[in-house]
Amino acid sequence: MGITTISFILLSLMAVGSGIMMILSKNPVNSILWLIVLFFAISGHYILLNAQFLAIVNIIVYAGAIMVLFLFVVMLMNLNAESEPAKNHRLQLIAIISGGSLLLILLSAIMTVKEAHPVMVAAGNAGLIKTLGKVLFTDYVLPFEISSVLFLSAMVGAVVIGKKD
């Protein structure tokens, strides 16, 4: 077993474990922290696939910005198990059925995959910033430009909202 396989197994265990812990945690703050651990595990997988840019952007955007906002909101509202209103049984039943059917669909999707590539290492350099940039600015230039306009308008919007005191 090479070092790549070992790290793949460790990272996968970390990802699945922290995912389970995120769901099982009673306290929403702990859930968020486990979710951050999960993002780190996923970034580790990206690095194993030689996609360093994706790995670091995953950390900057998800762990560094979005999760900070989640944490911000949870801390500000001081959510916890005691203040949570008790859900009635009908809602719980519906949640179980819808969650279960989602699981079924995902399972069937996984089962239909014919050929499995558990670890595809380093062979590709699709995730390197040079390759990614070239693809973004040639094949996908229109969606890229549209999304960048979207981001710019979001930023300008934030400044405008800040201006209205």
Binding site: V29, Q52, I56, G64, V68, L71, M75, I129
Partner: peptide, 25 residues
């Protein structure tokens, strides 16, 4: 010498707030 050096710095800086937030909460 990773080829995303400056982004790495940026990523770690953006994680720096967790120490303060977690301790504060």
């Amino acid at each position: 010498d990773i080829n995303i050096g400056i982004l790495y710095v940026f990523g770690v800086v953006s994680l720096g707030v967790y120490g303060i937030m977690i301790g504060a909460w």
